[in-house]
Amino acid sequence: MSDVLARHRAFYDAVETGDLELMESLWAQSPATSCVHPGSEPLTGTDAVLRSWAVVMANVEYIQFFLTDVSFSVHAGDVAVVTCTENILSGEGVETSDSFTGGKAVCTSVLVRDGAEAPWRFWSRHASPVLEPVEETD
């Protein structure tokens, strides 16, 4: 089932490189697809989901994902669930061009396929931020 994880990784490649064509190829075409970006309301329908990713990719100059805790399972042969922790490195919101900021989110993605020979496509994705505890100083 490495093809599930390859499609999952391709999603992050699309975001990191700003490749909207790749992103479009990864999503199932349906009014029932869904995506929840961290801290946002759910989006429904492939068109709305892809518009949101186009906006994200157009407005993020640099982003890189380091995935940890990746696990997946396949159900009924044509539904896969992938969970992971996204460790995010970005240049957004920093004052100088040689600085980076980071964040963390946990993500659950549901991928589907239409038969054993069909490619896996994203059906649903939900990412939630992980809040790091802030140490108090005297």
Rank of each mutant, 00 (worst) to 15 (best):
L5D: 02
R121Q: 08
T101N: 11
D78N: 14
L5M: 10
D47G: 07
R121F: 02
D98E: 08
E136C: 09
L5R: 05
V112L: 14
T68R: 13
A32M: 14
V49M: 03
H8V: 03
G93T: 07
H37T: 06
S97L: 12
K104S: 13
D138K: 15
D138L: 15
D138M: 13
L67E: 02
E24N: 09
E16V: 00
L50V: 01
T17D: 10
R121V: 02
G18V: 00
S52F: 03
S99E: 15
T17F: 06
A58H: 13
G45N: 03
A105T: 05
D19E: 08
C107G: 03
F72V: 04
A54M: 06
A127E: 05
P129W: 11
G77E: 09
L111I: 06
P119G: 05
A10Q: 02
D114A: 14
S52M: 05
L89R: 14
V79A: 12
G45F: 02
T44H: 11
S90E: 04
M1Q: 15
F122K: 01
L5W: 09
Q29W: 14
D13G: 04
V106D: 04
Y12S: 03
V56Q: 05
V70Q: 13
P129M: 12
V70D: 07
R125M: 07
V106Y: 11
V49H: 00
D3V: 04
G77W: 08
V55W: 10
T83G: 10
V60H: 03
P42G: 11
A58I: 06
W27T: 01
T85G: 05
E132P: 01
S124I: 01
D98W: 11
A10V: 02
V56T: 05
V110L: 07
V15A: 04
W123P: 00
V55G: 09
Q64S: 08
P42C: 12
G18T: 00
V82E: 01
L131Q: 08
G39P: 02
V106F: 13
R51W: 10
A28G: 04
G115Q: 07
W53M: 00
Y62F: 11
A116R: 12
A58W: 08
W27R: 01
L50F: 13
D47F: 07
P119C: 05
R113W: 05
V94G: 07
Q64E: 12
A105M: 07
D138W: 14
V110C: 07
V134D: 11
F122A: 02
V56E: 03
A14F: 01
R9S: 08
I63C: 03
T44E: 07
E41R: 15
V56L: 14
D13Y: 05
A54H: 01
A116I: 06
S97D: 15
G91T: 09
E136P: 06
V56C: 06
F72E: 07
S109L: 09
T108E: 06
L26E: 00
A28M: 14
K104W: 09
V106S: 07
T44G: 03
N59Q: 12
V60P: 00
V15T: 02
S124C: 08
S25L: 09
A28K: 13
E61V: 06
A76Y: 12
G45H: 04
G103Y: 02
P42Y: 14
P42L: 11
W123Q: 08
S128A: 15
S40L: 14
D138S: 15
